[in-house]
């Protein structure tokens, strides 16, 4: 009787473990809570078109999320086949200057990318790196542009939606 009871327990544990593995998503299809909301701060110096007051607003949408950021950018991101990688819907025509956006989650950070070929045929790439902080997000911006040295700036963005 005692033996059967233990087998029963083992089977139950196995069933629960299997259910847990099946229920857990294979890949995140949206943003963790700490990156969602409204954040603002001030960037010291200027990095390309980013200067001074900076706003970042992110929200969930079906199959992904949207991010809007200063001065006038926004993109909707969808989960890709790769875990923690999100693509904005491609509009093509990159050589004509249409920008491409994508994002990824890595090591607890959210990285949002924008890439554009400028009117002189040069590259213009921004990387926004967001790291959760006590009252919002720490942000680092990297800017890579033809004919210029790589630039970097950072800012503390405070959450203002709670």
């Amino acid at each position: 009787m005692f033996r059967w009871k233990w087998i029963d327990l083992r089977v139950r544990a196995l069933v629960w473990a299997t259910l847990f593995m099946v229920a857990a998503p294979a890949a995140a299809d949206t943003l963790p809570e700490e990156f969602l909301g409204k954040f603002r701060g001030s960037v010291t110096g200027n990095v390309g078109e980013v200067e001074g007051d900076f706003n970042m607003v992110s929200s969930i949408r079906r199959g992904g999320f949207t991010v809007a950021w200063s001065p006038n950018n926004s993109a909707g991101f969808e989960a890709s086949d790769q875990k923690n990688v999100f693509h904005a819907r491609s509009r093509g025509r990159l050589l004509e200057g249409v920008p491409a956006f994508w994002a990824r989650l890595a090591d607890g950070k959210l990285l949002v990318y924008s890439m554009q070929i400028d009117s002189h045929g040069g590259y213009d790439i921004y990387t926004f790196i967001y790291i959760p902080a006590a009252d919002g997000l720490d942000m680092t911006i990297r800017h890579l542009r033809s004919g210029s040295e790589p630039l970097e700036a950072s800012a503390r963005l405070k959450r203002y939606d709670r």
Partner: peptide, 18 residues
């Protein structure tokens, strides 16, 4: 651009870095 001929190649890799 100016007096420079630039040739560029870019890839976004599977993990999302470029």
């Amino acid at each position: 651009r100016d007096h420079t001929l630039g040739v560029y190649a870019m890839n976004v890799l599977e993990d999302g870095h470029y």
